[in-house]
Design a protein around this nucleic acid. Structure first.
Lengths: 213, 213
DNA sequence: GTCTATACACAGATAGAC
DNA sequence: GTCTATCTGTGTATAGAC
């Protein structure tokens, strides 16, 4: 968004390079936070671990992000952006039915979780909750995603492919919950199934239910 | 299990009374731990909070339980025992089909969770995990519950009421996961539905699936 | 067994040199 | 902006009187 100051003698190229380095460093930080957040959750993750994984001093982290909460919030925003990008890609495929889109979204969240990149959600009274609620990019992203999914949900109910007796918000929350469903980890830990099999099974239980059809 | 020593002059009644007091105190402790475990999880729960809620000094807690992990493990064992008692009650009702039994189990776990009494499961690398794996009562209880549910699952698949393309273990894990499904909390927080409505909706998504039947 | 007081460890955050 | 060194609070656990 910001351009190099024209009054300075330093060439814009150099400033851009430094900004690129800065951005790359922050990306590395956010990626490490994301991974640790998925692995152990916000409370159990320590800033020392983040610093160690990135390979910089802890004090340097605090030059980039003012607190542990902001660190985690940045990772959550990043995940939300990835989700938005995925929805963009889905919307660009006109051949899909609304139900197919919802199914693809669920599949994507499960893939992200099995890749160890889906942060587990903070408990109700966590300090992270306040930070997320105060983060405009996060809240805006969440609302955007919810709106788009909500649109597909009502469309799928209108065309008769989705259970019409469920309120759309219940469907929406059910899809969100699949992103952190521990069933994936349980089945993975059992060692009997590959990631693709696991995802197919959980997708089946989610959309088709446990009862025989 | 233990009886008063016959060589002592103190009447057995008194010893029994003190044991009752002791047991009542421990029950109060476990109940508080259970509630806090459900509310904020193992990492965020502090022993100070437990002591404050029970109304005794922190050091007294450590006379009853040697560590925070043992404290939490005791609460988990208690929950497992409650589950076993519930299964006992279900088995005593011969009129129920296997599918109905499974549905009642899912309903019970959701009721417990909405009552704020279902501890959230520890993350993969938590110190609580090791304590639970080392707790014979817990592991035994978990295996007993799994065996009984597993029996009903294969019965329900045999009588054609449960999806036969799913491995029984996937069904089992799916039921376990419903016990800590965040959807319940989401819907509760939305303020639009009562607990009974919420449970019916989640039961529907679990057994009937999101797709229209 | 219950208490007060305290030891010990560690996590989040900062100071200040470079 | 990065580092080393440090401050500060807090959480688990224990000592020791009663």
């Amino acid at each position: 968004m910001s351009s190099a100051s024209p009054t300075l003698a330093t060439p814009p190229v150099k400033r851009s390079f430094r900004e690129q380095m800065h951005q790359a460093r922050e990306d590395a930080i956010v990626a490490a936070v994301n991974r640790l957040l998925a692995e152990k959750g916000f409370e159990a993750m320590t800033v020392d671990e983040v610093a160690a994984e990135v390979g910089i001093a802890k004090a340097s982290l605090y030059k980039h992000f003012p607190s542990k909460e902001d660190l985690a919030a940045a990772a959550m925003v990043k995940v939300m952006q990835r989700a938005q990008s995925f929805l963009d890609g889905l919307q660009a495929r006109p051949g899909l039915t609304p139900l197919q889109r919802l199914r693809e979204v669920a599949r994507w969240t499960m893939e992200v979780q099995l890749a160890g990149e889906m942060p587990s959600l903070p408990s109700e009274n966590s300090s992270l909750r306040a930070a997320l609620a105060a983060s405009k990019p996060y809240v805006d992203g969440l609302m955007d995603v919810s709106d788009r999914l909500g649109g597909w949900i009502v469309e799928a109910q209108a065309d008769g492919s989705l259970n019409t007796s469920l309120p759309p918000i219940a469907v929406l929350y059910t899809l969100y919950a699949r992103a952190c469903d521990p069933v994936l980890g349980f089945l993975k830990a059992s060692g009997q199934y590959g990631t693709e099999q696991i995802i197919e099974m959980v997708l089946s239980t989610c959309f088709d239910g446990l009862r025989q059809r």
